Simulated assay, not measured.
Amino acid sequence: MGLEDELAVALGASSVSFLGRGTFGDTWRALDLDGIPEPLAVKVLRAEFFNPRLLARETSNLNEFDHDNIVRLHSVQTITFQGEEHHVIVCEYIDGGSAGQALRAGARPSYKHIRKFAQGLFEAVVELHAKDKIHRDLKPDNIMLRDGKWKQPVLIDFGLVRSLTGDTMTNYPAMVGSIPWMAPEQLQGEKARKACDNWACGVILYQLLTGTHPFFQGVDIRAMEPEELVDLVSVPPPPLPAEVPNDLAEVVIRLLTPDPPGARGSAARALKTLRGAN
């Protein structure tokens, strides 16, 4: 029996197909799971990384939200797969791939589509921040494009979402992969705040507008010390192309303010600026 067939049997699905690999587990597309004909996304947590607190955190956070720009939770299950017990998180399946996949494929959306993407992104972040939650891992690979449309971004991967009333230090296994989108204060080991999510949004939009990272062009961040990384993000990014619409440029420049973090403004302010250009 092949891996896909074995997992399908364990889940009680008619078939599964591999979608991607993350720090805490692999994600699969499952058909006919729990008698539901529509495809679902199944995140199979690796046994060696499983932490009950992480699972409880991710599922409780997802249960709090009912928003078109935030992935919807279906269920949490426990299965036996490859001789080990695994916990799985079942969410809605979002067809269309991620913003990260689109960027790696060389896709460059129009300014109109970038504005719509940004509005959807900020609507999701406003929803998070209104409930005193921070994502802490905003990046193109954690933003799906529903039906492949830039105007329909959907936030996924809520395993690192934390309440602002709790411990929000940024020491976690996914840190290396997320360094390009971490704010200066995160790189210095300070507590993550809403301003950190806003910084990440600024980096993402800069990438969409230019096709390049605002700070880490031509450098190997894996070989750099945290202090060196902080130095790189503590200066203004290269200017945006002159043809970038004023509202988008204004938002990105404000969000990429290194210090003080409060100068970046809120996601709600960014959303208001972009809606005013419609």
Rank of each mutant, 00 (worst) to 15 (best):
E225Q: 15
I204S: 04
V76W: 07
E38M: 07
G262E: 11
F24W: 11
L40M: 10
L255N: 11
V233D: 02
I179H: 10
G218K: 03
A8R: 03
W199G: 06
T78F: 12
L31M: 11
Q82F: 08
I253G: 02
G22V: 15
K272P: 04
G22H: 08
R275V: 15
D141R: 08
A99V: 07
F122I: 00
S98T: 12
A105I: 06
A195K: 06
L138E: 00
T59K: 14
F216T: 03
L229H: 00
R21H: 12
V233K: 09
I94P: 01
T23G: 03
D132M: 04
E84R: 14
G265Y: 05
S60C: 15
E228Q: 13
Q217T: 14
W199R: 09
D167H: 15
E58T: 10
L160N: 02
R146Y: 04
S266T: 09
R53Q: 13
F65N: 00
V88G: 03
V154P: 02
A124M: 05
N63E: 12
D66H: 08
Q119L: 10
L45W: 01
P237D: 01
D132E: 05
A268C: 12
A99I: 06
V125T: 15
M169D: 08
H113V: 14
N198S: 10
G177F: 11
R162Q: 06
P258E: 04
R275N: 15
T80A: 06
S234H: 04
F50A: 01
A30I: 13
F24D: 05
T78R: 13
G265L: 10
N198L: 14
K272W: 09
V230M: 03
A118N: 00
L255D: 11
L54W: 11
T257K: 09
Q207T: 09
R146Q: 05
E4G: 10
D137K: 02
A10W: 05
Q152K: 15
D26G: 12
D147Y: 09
V154F: 04
A10Y: 05
E4C: 11
A174Y: 06
R146P: 02
D132Q: 07
G265N: 05
T257Y: 12
R136S: 03
W150P: 02
W181N: 09
I221D: 00
P184E: 11
E243A: 12
A183P: 12
E243I: 12
D157S: 08
T210E: 02
R53N: 12
W150D: 01
L31K: 13
G148W: 05
I89M: 03
V90Y: 10
P37V: 14
